[in-house]
């Protein structure tokens, strides 16, 4: 029988549970992934994009449920199409991107809720879609997240020069031979796939926190690009592990627990930010 509260015996019991072990590894990997991609996404003003994608993903999931396919399998192509569509739309339209994203995500959300209201047999419950079910992550899900982490990490490492130049100034980047349009598109697609994969664990409402909060906290205190990405990744992973343990120990919902820990990390960074400004040789 499980106790609750903070004592070593309880912690040991918790860590012995296979689903808890999977959840912790999933949190660690998702946190790393969110931190690394988020550090570029935040500088490129894509915070709202990940939020909108998370909300729109509910439509992808509903389509999956309705068609009887595995929702994750439907979600990945859905996210890629969403990313490409938004990228095209933002490039051609005269409207600001945040307004466009708002239109796309609120209409996707509305359609998703309408679709789900027709599905009476759906057992999972909307609660799990909204806030995720990190305790229900399988070894297969973990494998997919790990592959994605390797692929996304490798891509960013190898194209680091292009990614930073593009984030500073597009004409400057192009003048240095960076294929701007191509890199912009690939990054958005990678971000979309990462968001889609992480949704099962974190839920559609809070997924953008994984991308945005650790990166912003790191941005406040870092004095070079290398440390910025590293701190964002470690913060993402650390907050996820601490949040999940807290959720297990005190029997709290997992996604929100992680986000609250991220918030604490962000507040800490806010306090430390003035120190990193004066610390100058």
């Amino acid at each position: 029988m499980l106790d609750s509260g903070l004592d070593p015996a309880h912690l040991a019991q918790l860590l012995a549970l296979p689903f808890m072990q999977r959840a912790l590894v999933a949190g660690l990997l998702t946190g790393l992934l969110g931190g690394v991609l988020g550090s570029v996404a935040v500088l490129r003003q894509l915070s709202f994009f990940s939020d909108a994608l998370g909300h729109s993903a509910l439509l992808g999931i509903s389509l999956g449920i309705l068609s009887g396919l595995n929702p994750t399998l439907v979600l990945i192509p859905f996210a890629v199409l969403f990313a490409l569509g938004v990228n095209q739309l933002a490039g051609r339209s005269q409207l600001p991107t945040d307004a466009l994203l708002n239109i796309v995500y609120s209409s996707s959300l509305a359609l998703a809720v309408l679709l789900l209201s027709r599905v009476r047999s759906y057992k999972g419950g909307i609660q799990q879609l909204l806030f995720g079910d990190i305790l229900g992550v399988s070894w297969l899900d973990l494998g997919v997240i790990l592959l994605l982490l390797i692929a996304a990490g490798g891509y960013l490492l190898l194209t680091r020069r292009s990614q930073i130049l593009l984030t500073i100034d597009e004409p400057l980047a192009i003048s240095r031979g960076v294929a701007a349009g191509w890199h912009r598109m690939v990054f958005i697609v990678v971000l979309a796939v990462v968001v889609a994969i992480s949704i099962k664990a974190v839920g559609v409402l809070l997924i953008s926190a994984f991308v945005v909060i650790p990166a912003c906290a790191s941005r406040l205190v870092s004095r070079s690009f290398g440390t910025y990405v590293l701190v964002a990744a470690l913060l993402g992973a650390g907050c996820a592990v601490v949040g999940l343990l807290a959720s297990g120990l005190f029997d709290l919902p997992s996604g929100p627990s992680v986000v609250v820990v991220q918030l604490l990390g962000f507040l800490l960074a806010l306090l430390l930010a003035p120190l990193s400004r004066v610390a100058r040789p």
Partner: peptide
């Protein structure tokens, strides 16, 4: 923008294409 001037200037030194940091 968390990029030091030395890192920025280093980007001007790097050549186009894939490379490890």
């Amino acid at each position: 923008f968390p990029l030091s001037v030395a890192e920025f200037v280093g980007l001007g030194w790097e050549r186009a294409g894939l490379a490890l940091p």
